[in-house]
Amino acid sequence: MPDQLLYAIEVTLNGLMAGVLYALVALGFVLIFKASGIFNYAQGVMALFAAMTLVGIQNGQVPFAHLINAILGTEIHHFGWHVPALLAILLTACVMVLFAWIVERYILKHLVGQPDIILFMATIGMAYFMEGFGDLMWGADIKKLDVGLPQGGSLWLEENTAWLGGDGFYGFFIDKLDMVATVVAAILVASLVAFSQYTKQGRAMRAVADDHQAALSVGVSLRFIWVLVWSLAGFVALVAGIMWGAKSGVQFSLSLIALKALPVLMLGGFTSIPGAIVGGLIIGVGEKLFEFLIGAPFLGGATENWFAYMLALLFLVFRPQGLFGEKIIERV
């Protein structure tokens, strides 16, 4: 096989993996949008907050240490223990559920029946509040997230694929973390789909997404469903936060991955879980391949920053509801 083709395959594989990570973020948006029609601007910050909390719990950091020290004049920063990764993840998941409950209790409950734009504004406010709150709670420094996920390229894969090409080809380079992320995302999506299709709460969730009044009439509590949906979105944010945090450290820029999810949503549709996945994969592969084949040789590179948006824009022109979005047909 010619080297050029092998490189293209490698780029495609890496694109698929990157796409999975985009999809993870997009998934959180879809969950909340489906159930309540809210575009949750805070999804990216939720991922950041979850990752910060995870690192904080793992390292035995004292929450609000700066605040406590400033007021009481003490000098405490650490409890002095280390929490095992799995337990820390569980505890963080609990924090995200608590967060979901607080959002419902103190924000959404008061905004029932308000126009969508008001709810959207509320999530913007929430995003900035959370960002500051997270910094206050855990400190604004860049943190290293390590829950024991494998890192670095897979040597095994490189060695076993090197024979495919000539002397200049050293085998496919694929990050082990990306592979783990792919498997985790696949499991997550499969279980989310199964949950919403076959369980009581899943069915109630879909009912609320479809028609509030009808859902009430069959005995579904809207408030419970909203807490549930925000908890799920919080959990998805946690998973995305772990993957992205392990990849590039826990810092403010982590919250910007939400921006990467936007073109994915436009492509896949705001209401479809499989759409988020396929959209993520198309964007991931598309931007990597475009950079490799056209961007780097002809356009001076750095096309990855805008390619996704261009692609999404093109899609919007031809299919405004996205690939898998529900086309709304009104009977007249």
Partner: peptide
């Protein structure tokens, strides 16, 4: 309901 409230999707 008078105006039918079903889950259309």
């Amino acid at each position: 309901f008078q105006n039918i409230a079903l889950f259309d999707g």
